[in-house]
Every structure is written in C-alpha cells, then in structure tokens.
Amino acid sequence: MTTITPAAARAIYQRIADNIARIMQGQSAATRKLLAALASGGHVLLEDFPGTGKTTLAKALARSLDAKFKRVQFTPDLLPSDILGVSIFNQRDQRFFFHEGPVFTNILLADEINRASPRTQSALLEAMGEGQVSVDGERRDLDSLFFVIATQNPVEFRGTYPLPEAQMDRFAMQFTLGYVQPAEEVAILSAQQHNHPLEQLTSCASLADVLALKRAAEDVRISEELKRYVVELVAATRTTTGVQLGASPRASLALMKAAQALALFDGLDFVTPEQVQELAVPVIAHRLVMEPQARFSGLTTQGVVEDVVKKTKVPA
C-alpha cells in the first residue's frame, strides 16, 4: 500500500469534495463529515426528511470514486441472505457455490435501513464491525474498503423497525443534511431541468487513492491530552441526568479517528480540540439512549452532547 504526503491526501479529499459539490449544493459540511467517516474507516447513517438528498449524496460519493458500489433497498421482506449472499447447489459440479450478496462491495448504500426487520438489519453487524461475514460457518473477508452509507426517514413510524442499540453503535456517525438555502434550491432546480447531473458525474479518485487517504488519516498525530479529552466527553454522557445508556468506548475510538481525518482535511498533521468538538455530536449523539421522562420533557441526545461539550473543560 502506497503512502502519500498529507498535502497529497488533502488534495484527494478536495477533489472528491469538489466533485460531490457539483451535485450537492450547499452541503459542504455534510460532505466533510461523510468523507471524514470514509477516511477514518467508519460508516455513516443519514437521517433526514424525504427529498433532502440522502441517496443522492451517497450516489454522488459512489460515482466520485472508482470503486464497486451496490445499493440495497431495505424492505420488510428482505432476508439476511439477500444482503450477505447464499450458497447454491451446482448440479453440474455436485457442490455448493457461494453467490455473494451486495455486501461484497466497496460502497454499500443501505437505503431506508429501518424498513427491514431487526434480523436483516443485524446481518450487517459483523460486516460493519469487523469487515467480514460468516456464512454457512465459513468466514469471508470483505474488501479493504468497505463503507456503508445507510439512510433512514425519521418521520415514518408505521412499518419501520428502529435500529437496535448495537447496530447504532456500529455507525461511526449519524447526521442530517437539512434543507438547503432557497438560492441553492433554485440552483438545484436549474441543474436538473433537463436531466440529473448525477448521470454526468465521473469518478475523480481511485480505490487506491481512498486507501491512501485512509492511511494518511491514520498517520495524523494526536496528543495524549486530546485522547483524554475525547474520553472525558464520551464518559460524561454516561453520568448525565436523563441518559439511560451512555456512549461506549467504541464512540471514543470513532471520535478520535474521525478527528484525525478532519485534521488531515484541514491541512494539519496533528489533531486540535476544534476537530474533536466539531464531530462530537455526529459521532456520539446517536449512540445514547434517553430515559423516557427526559425524552418526554424535550431533552434530545444532540442537546445532551452539546451540553457536555459546553461544560467539559477543553484543552487550550
């Protein structure tokens, strides 16, 4: 695996970000987080209202990279084998032949993931956590780049299955896109007047580039003091009033790695507190489970993490 300089890595990031920006108007912050997750080896859960561009963002990223991309539309009747693959008996060879599922790819778009049953959702646990799947008692490694972008709709409840806590913990980040500014929305209308610009989008980075970007992010230095700060933020969620289940050490790990990637994007070869704070909410909030009374009184997981960030003494 080739190693590149931070500047070269930043150039790769910039290229991909610019390419996506051609499609996603006014979503630079979301793109930045998405690419931070990609570069840190995490997975992303996009939660937003219908029509805000979740799927488009995922497809724009997939098209920007010269990598395998598969999309799974999650439905209530989807089975784990529909994702992982299935062994089929080949009568000619008189043996079983494994037919790989869509999980064997580089970028997997799990669209509307909360429409499938928890059983099917859980099929992704091993793949997302360990980069491998076990089918018929046999372990099968996934590609070195395996990135899941899942989307879900927060306003629909009928026929949906909320993701289990363990599954939520597997996502490095969860964030929303939000509605764009009117001017940007007008620009979207203009761009799609004849056809979708996504059709014309071509790849701007190879698989090797992305792997190099990941390696460069890993090499970004982080001080012991900031590691402690990361742990303090995460640990504070476990003792906060109204929180039934705090964030796990996996959240600390994800926050550190994502902050490293973000520092790389900012042209730094070390992490600063600003990068940690920027990603605290998208990395930690979705892992928390609130007590019913707290939820009823209007307290949200995002609010809890923002409060923790505000109250925890930041290294300076």
Partner: peptide, 20 residues
C-alpha cells in the same frame, strides 16, 4: 495573551476552544 484579553472583558468559557 489569553489572560490579558480575558481581563479586558472577553473571558473564555470552559468548553470554548481557542479559535472560537
């Protein structure tokens, strides 16, 4: 420098990073 600026009426909150 931070001490001097804080004394001028712009103190820094506990969770506020230096850049902000």
């Amino acid at each position: 420098l931070e001490k001097r600026l804080a004394a001028r009426g712009v103190p820094r909150a506990a969770g506020e990073p230096l850049s902000s």
